[in-house]
């Protein structure tokens, strides 16, 4: 070899600092742990020794005790049991509807961004027209007529109404990744469309997608709370969602003001869960952001 002088030597050392990212941080891990506990409880609720949410197992309005970790409500039902079972509904709505939204909006957005041209114009005009319409009104309208409301129906309605938003985010992410020279370079190597979408685009839009997914779940869980407040979520006696519990508590608190755990616990859990989701989502985004680590 003639160009010995260019063989990387100690002085040139490619990466003097091999990608030292800011550490993930203990707080993020706490949030992740908290999210994991919630998900586990929701998934494993039937197997765990969790009190039945609808059974009046004890005196109403009991304080916290070993038997009833968070006390009982005004009908003598175990609050912890109701919260744990309720997480199945709340998380189900959040994750289920986002699965629909990402399952449809994600691929469409990426395809539109990659292909551009007519396909993009047509899909984007449809999607952006829907985006212009306030989706909360559509959701309320559909849910007030489509009765009886079940978990599945709520997931479908929220999921479909979120498709345009996910489409827009994923399309924007893929557009920016797709305009990079490495996509052109891959084409020059002879890579076909599918390979480019999976090898070049997907890894670069995945972090954006993942963090947006977490924000989406958080938003939908909060939205379900709002729907419950309006009496538009699943009827509380089938299974209580967190939102339903807060709504119930608000009404019963008027009668029994000292029964504060009834409103404190569901609100706190809901808040903490959403906060943790948002925080982890944000941290993920910066963790995977390649440009932020580059010196």
């Amino acid at each position: 070899m003639t160009n010995n002088e260019v063989v990387i030597n100690a002085a040139e050392s490619v990466v003097e600092q091999p990608e030292k990212k800011a550490p993930i941080g203990i707080f993020t891990w706490i949030c992740v742990g908290w999210l994991a506990i919630n998900v586990l409880v929701a998934v494993l609720a039937p197997l765990l020794p969790i009190p039945d949410p609808n059974e009046m197992i004890s005196m109403p309005g009991m304080g916290m005790s070993f038997d009833h970790l968070m006390g009982t409500d005004d009908l003598g039902r175990d609050i912890f049991g109701r919260l744990a079972w309720g997480s199945r509904i709340s998380l189900g709505v959040g994750i289920g509807s986002m699965a629909i939204a990402f399952g449809v909006g994600g691929p469409l957005g990426m395809l539109a961004a990659y292909r551009r041209g007519k396909m993009d114009v047509i899909m984007s005009s449809v999607m952006f027209t829907f985006l212009a319409f306030p989706s909360i009104i559509a959701i309320i309208a559909v849910l007030s007529f489509w009765t009886p409301r079940s978990l599945g129906k709520i997931i479908i309605v929220i999921g479909i109404s979120s498709i345009p938003l996910v489409y827009r985010v994923m399309r924007a992410a893929a557009l920016s990744a797709g305009s990079k020279e490495y996509v052109t370079a891959a084409r020059v190597q002879g890579a076909r469309d599918r390979r480019i979408i999976f090898r070049e685009l997907l890894p670069n839009v995945a972090p954006t997608g993942l963090s947006f997914l977490l924000f989406g779940v958080a938003t939908v869980i909060a939205l379900e709370g709002v729907l419950a407040f309006l009496g538009l979520s699943i009827a509380p006696d089938i299974a209580p969602s967190w939102g339903n519990m807060i709504n119930d508590a608000r009404q019963s608190l008027n009668n029994v003001p000292q029964n504060w755990p009834l409103i404190i616990f569901p609100s706190a859990i809901l808040c903490l869960f959403i906060l943790a989701l948002n925080f982890v989502g944000d941290r993920l985004r910066s963790y995977f952001d390649v440009t932020e680590v580059k010196l």
């Binding site: 990079k180 020279e181 490495y182 052109t184 370079a185 891959a186 020059v188 190597q189 002879g190 890579a191 076909r192 390979r195 090898r199 070049e200 890894p203 670069n204 390649v290």
Partner: peptide, 29 residues
């Protein structure tokens, strides 16, 4: 025919390993 581009950094997918990048044409074909 092959082409090399102006912006060296954006010509390479930041999320792929060097050896996979170099092997890309071999894999494609």
């Amino acid at each position: 025919m092959q082409m090399i581009f102006q912006d060296p950094i954006s010509s390479l997918n930041p999320r792929r390993r060097v050896k996979d990048i170099v092997a890309e044409p071999l894999d494609c074909w």
